[in-house]
Amino acid sequence: MTTFKLIINGKTLKGEITIEAVDAAEAEKIFKQYANDNGIDGEWTYDDATKTFTVTE
Rank of each mutant, 00 (worst) to 15 (best):
M1E: 11
M1L: 11
T2P: 07
T3K: 04
F4V: 03
F4L: 01
F4N: 00
K5N: 03
L6N: 01
I7Q: 12
I7C: 02
I7P: 00
I7T: 04
I8N: 03
N9D: 07
N9K: 12
N9P: 04
N9I: 10
G10C: 01
G10P: 05
K11V: 07
K11M: 04
T12V: 13
T12K: 09
L13R: 09
K14N: 12
K14V: 13
K14C: 06
G15N: 11
G15D: 05
G15K: 15
G15L: 14
E16C: 03
E16S: 14
I17V: 10
I17C: 01
I17N: 13
I19Q: 06
E20D: 12
E20N: 04
A21R: 06
V22D: 09
V22L: 06
D23M: 02
A24F: 14
A24S: 13
A24V: 14
A25Y: 15
A25N: 13
E26P: 05
A27H: 00
A27N: 00
E28A: 03
K29T: 09
K29N: 04
I30R: 09
F31R: 00
F31S: 05
K32R: 05
K32A: 05
K32V: 05
Q33I: 13
A35R: 05
N36M: 15
N36G: 15
N36T: 12
D37L: 09
D37W: 15
N38K: 13
N38Y: 12
G39F: 09
I40L: 14
I40R: 02
D41V: 15
D41S: 10
D41Y: 11
G42Y: 04
E43S: 10
E43D: 08
T45K: 11
T45F: 09
Y46M: 05
Y46C: 01
Y46W: 06
D47Q: 09
D47M: 03
D48C: 12
A49C: 02
A49D: 13
A49Q: 10
A49M: 06
T50P: 04
T50M: 09
K51V: 09
K51W: 06
K51A: 13
T52L: 12
T52P: 00
F53M: 12
T54A: 11
V55P: 00
V55Y: 07
T56C: 03
T56K: 13
T56F: 06
E57R: 10
E57P: 10
E57V: 05
